[in-house]
């Protein structure tokens, strides 16, 4: 009897929380856009839009891979270091032409993912530990390969970073294309389905004969390659390889975007659209505060509040 009475009060709260979890991030983006339209001068301009879009691309691309890794219940802390390695590879191999340099960078990302995935899948190292090792080692490796900032003049590479097609920067087009690819992989391929199953219940997945190890390795390779892409684009935009600073704190920003987007850290769910919105939300939040000349520390505090909110909403859901 008591249960019935309780059950009647609960739904409203549950429904609200579920709505917040599923659409809260979009509501947040919408709210920030409205606030800016009202308060920020020149916000509603193509230039502003373009700048925001370009700035969000590295986080977004990295977060795509992160979302899939988190979908398996794992995490990848090495993405920032992989970006730095990619930057070093660009500088080292640019002599063979921009295509070779970019391929070398992507290959480095794939190898890093292969190592992380093997550690997780075969050795059984916890993802956070395995990728933490790669994060530290990768950054070191990047700096060994290229001890200091190296500017380059290669026109093709610079064009990749700052060129546009019909007024849309290449980097944004690439980010959109990659988003679509990842959405397709997650929703339409056996690999995507298996990622969700493994994250949702590893024991059941193993008993159902799923290639758990292969999927885990694939996931980390995907995250590594995407991080390398982000590293290449950021380097191209910068016009310089900067292994010391490039991608710093990127892992945390990417995780933040994923979590805000409603992907549970426990695995079993991947929300790509939410992740995109999460990255955009963080970007807008930062931009809003900067455009109103508030100090950096405010941005950090605001981000923290958003993260706590997102985690709280997810937690409440997990309880019922």
């Amino acid at each position: 009897m008591a249960d019935l009475a309780l059950a009647r009060v609960r739904p409203d709260r549950t429904v609200l929380l579920r709505w917040l979890r599923d659409y809260g991030v979009y509501a947040g983006v919408a709210a920030l856009v409205l606030v800016n339209l009202a308060l920020t001068p020149n916000f509603a301009s193509l230039d502003t839009l373009r700048v925001q879009a370009v700035q969000v691309t590295p986080i977004l691309i990295v977060a795509l891979g992160m979302a899939v890794v988190i979908g398996t219940g794992g995490i990848d802390l090495s993405v920032g270091a992989v970006m730095a390695v990619a930057a070093s590879m660009i500088s080292l191999y640019l002599g063979y032409g921009p295509v070779a340099a970019v391929l070398a960078a992507l290959l480095a990302g794939a190898v890093s993912g292969l190592v992380a995935g093997s550690l997780v899948a075969f050795v059984g190292v916890q993802p956070i530990v395995a990728t933490l090792a790669l994060m530290i080692g990768g950054r070191g490796l990047a700096e060994v390969m290229l001890p200091q900032l190296d500017t380059f003049r290669n026109p093709e590479l610079r064009a990749l970073g700052s060129g546009m097609f019909l007024g849309v920067p290449y980097v944004v087009l690439i980010a959109v294309a990659l988003t679509l690819v990842v959405v397709f992989v997650v929703r339409r391929t056996t690999f995507g389905r298996q990622v969700l199953a493994i994250g949702g219940n590893p024991a059941a997945s193993a008993l159902a004969g799923l290639p758990v190890r292969r999927v885990l390795i694939g996931v980390y390779v995907l995250a590594g390659v995407l991080a390398a892409v982000a590293g290449v684009l950021a380097t191209a935009r910068l016009g310089a390889s900067d292994p010391t600073r490039l991608g710093e704190l990127m892992e945390l920003n990417a995780i933040t975007a994923v979590v805000i987007g409603g992907t549970a850290l426990t695995g079993g769910r991947v929300r790509i659209a939410g992740t995109v919105a999460g990255a955009v939300l963080m970007q807008l939040l930062t931009a809003t505060l900067i455009m109103h000349n508030l100090p950096q520390s405010w941005t950090q505090i605001a981000s923290a509040v958003v993260i706590v909110l997102a985690v709280w909403v997810a937690r409440e859901r997990g309880r019922n």
Partner: peptide, 20 residues
């Protein structure tokens, strides 16, 4: 613990092992 993947749909759970 070893059977259902609770977050996935009925459909995805049924198809899980036969996916390939």
């Amino acid at each position: 613990a070893e059977g259902i993947v609770p977050g996935l749909s009925v459909r995805d759970n049924i198809a899980l092992a036969a996916l390939p």
